[in-house]
Amino acid sequence: MPAYLISQGTVKDPERMQAYRAAVVPLIAKFEGRYIVRRGKVEVLEGQHDGRSVTIHEFPSIEAIHAFWESPEYASIKDLRLGAADLDLWAVEGV
């Protein structure tokens, strides 16, 4: 069953975030993840949106998200992101 890693946030240090993206994109692919939304424009149909960008990655399963998130490879690049952006991150199982 597919699963989705969703992030919503604000970039504070664009240079560090660019370095993080350069490192994380191939790692996501290694764990069979792919971008399906990359900082896409949010169009509010009902309710509210706080203006932060949204990114969604699709993985083959929730286990694949955990394998990526808990991998030594990700641990080595996560520090690039910490402090460079304020993010909320969620893992959600699909149907």
Rank of each mutant, 00 (worst) to 15 (best):
A3L: 10
Y4Q: 04
I6F: 08
I6M: 12
I6P: 04
S7G: 12
G9I: 02
T10Q: 07
V11C: 04
V11K: 00
V11R: 05
K12C: 01
K12I: 02
D13P: 01
R16E: 00
R16S: 00
Y20W: 01
Y20D: 02
R21D: 08
A22V: 12
A22Y: 00
A22Q: 07
V24H: 06
V24D: 06
V25R: 07
V25W: 01
L27W: 12
A29Y: 04
K30G: 04
K30D: 14
F31R: 08
F31Y: 12
F31T: 01
E32F: 09
E32D: 09
E32G: 14
G33K: 03
G33E: 07
R34A: 15
Y35A: 11
Y35H: 05
Y35S: 05
I36M: 07
V37R: 00
R38A: 14
R38Y: 11
R39A: 13
R39E: 00
G40R: 01
G40Q: 03
K41W: 00
K41L: 05
K41I: 06
V42L: 08
V42D: 00
E43C: 09
V44K: 01
V44T: 13
L45K: 15
E46V: 15
E46W: 11
E46S: 14
G47N: 08
G47S: 07
G47Q: 01
Q48P: 14
Q48W: 04
Q48A: 06
H49V: 00
D50T: 09
D50A: 12
G51F: 10
S53F: 13
S53P: 00
V54T: 14
V54L: 10
I56E: 07
I56D: 05
I56P: 08
I56Y: 00
H57K: 01
F59M: 08
P60W: 03
P60R: 06
I62Q: 11
A64N: 02
A64T: 04
F68G: 15
S71N: 13
P72M: 11
P72F: 15
E73Q: 15
E73S: 05
E73F: 03
Y74E: 07
A75S: 12
A75V: 12
A75M: 07
S76E: 13
S76V: 15
S76F: 10
I77Q: 04
K78I: 02
D79K: 12
D79S: 14
L80D: 07
R81Q: 14
R81C: 13
R81Y: 10
G83A: 11
A84P: 05
A84V: 12
A85P: 03
A85V: 13
A85E: 03
D86A: 10
D86T: 13
L87Y: 14
D88K: 01
L89C: 02
L89N: 06
L89I: 08
W90S: 15
V92F: 09
V92W: 02
E93T: 11
V95W: 02
V95G: 11
V95C: 06
V95Y: 06
